[in-house]
């Protein structure tokens, strides 16, 4: 298997799907001539030309809605947000239109669209540019949302997303773009809604998604070597659809759970998972479920403070030690 970056994995997924299906095209700010604000779409303009790789003005409401309209006609747009933080200016289009049209038409119209881009903090860009809206999106029936943590997952999930007949929101992370990992050369997909146990363990379940899954793996190592705690790491990969089975199996085995995410705590992804665990695995719990999320405030700019605000390995370990 080739070792490639998360960035290139996403690039490959798009290139392969564009080559495979003539209805797939890419649209967003700076995606073509500039090669992407984070160079994720590098080389695609040269390969596929300006009809398939389209630079849009700063008109998110316009081009996201245009994407939904094109998807109603059967095209499969892959719309890039330079940052997920900019989805809010297009929220009516991505929430009201993308999510509701299938329902309101009694199932007559499908919206096979992908919205993708980075959604994360930790890069010192302040409150307006550090949003992680997967919980908002997952709160909306009609939408699907995935948050890959590795190059392998990023490619497999994005390919599934593009082939899916519903709107799928793919949330990446600028801090992961340079990470490397093994990715098969052959065509493969990862079905939406399948979590992965990234590390087996017996003492406690760390449930996370996106970059937090990577942090959990690092925390698990420290827990093993310094505290003799054998943690299992469940990477959700997909938030909606959600793989309840894998979460419950893990908790039934370890009897303890810490839920880790970069969202702010109120109605974060962890709140829903917490509710599922207590409802369906209550008798297996030996301790209250704990959550690690970002400190509940708008994103602070100051570099060292932001590192304290978002989940970090120390905070994950401290929280585990409270109940294990």
């Amino acid at each position: 298997m080739a070792i490639i970056t998360y960035r290139d994995a996403i690039n490959q997924a798009m290139a392969e799907e564009i080559a495979r299906d003539s209805d797939v095209f890419i649209m967003g700010e700076e995606v073509a001539q500039y090669k992407g604000a984070y160079k994720v779409t590098r080389g695609l303009l040269e390969k596929f030309g300006p009809e398939r790789i389209i630079d849009a003005p700063i008109s998110e409401a316009g081009f996201c809605g245009l994407g939904v309209g094109a998807a109603m006609m059967g095209l499969r747009p892959v719309v890039e947000f330079m940052f997920w933080s900019f989805c809010y200016v297009a929220f009516d289009q991505v929430i009201n239109n993308a999510a509701n049209i299938r329902y309101m038409s009694g199932g007559l119209i499908n919206i096979p669209i992908v919205f993708r881009g980075p959604g994360n903090g930790g890069t010192n860009v302040g409150a307006t540019h550090s949003h992680t809206p997967e919980n908002f999106v997952a709160n909306t029936p009609g939408l699907k949302v995935v948050c890959p943590s590795t190059p392998y997952d990023a490619k497999g999930l994005l390919k599934s997303a593009i082939r899916d007949n519903d709107p799928v929101f793919v949330m990446e992370n600028t801090l992961l773009y340079g990470n490397q990992g093994e990715v098969p050369e052959d065509d493969y997909v990862i079905p939406l809604g399948v979590a992965e146990v990234k590390k087996e363990g017996s003492d406690i379940s760390l449930v996370a998604h996106g970059r937090c899954a990577i942090l959990c793996l690092e925390a698990a190592e420290v827990l093993a070597t310094e505290h003799g705690i054998n943690a299992e790491v469940v990477d959700l990969r997909s938030i909606r659809p959600l793989d309840e089975e894998t979460i419950l199996q893990s908790v039934k085995k370890t009897n303890r759970a810490v839920l880790v995410e970069e969202n702010k705590p109120f109605c974060g992804v962890g709140s829903q998972i917490c509710s599922i665990i207590q409802e369906k695995a209550f008798d297996y719990l030996d301790a209250p479920i704990k959550r690690v999320s970002s400190i509940d405030a708008p994103q602070i700019y100051s570099m060292p403070l932001e590192q304290e605000q978002i989940p970090n390995i120390e905070r994950i370990i401290d929280t585990v030690l409270e109940i294990a």
Binding site: V125, G126, A127, T128, H129, P298, I300, Y301, S302, L305
Partner: peptide, 10 residues
């Protein structure tokens, strides 16, 4: 000016 909370853009 914003106690380190806003940053360059704010």
């Amino acid at each position: 000016c914003s106690k380190g909370k806003g940053g360059s853009m704010h």
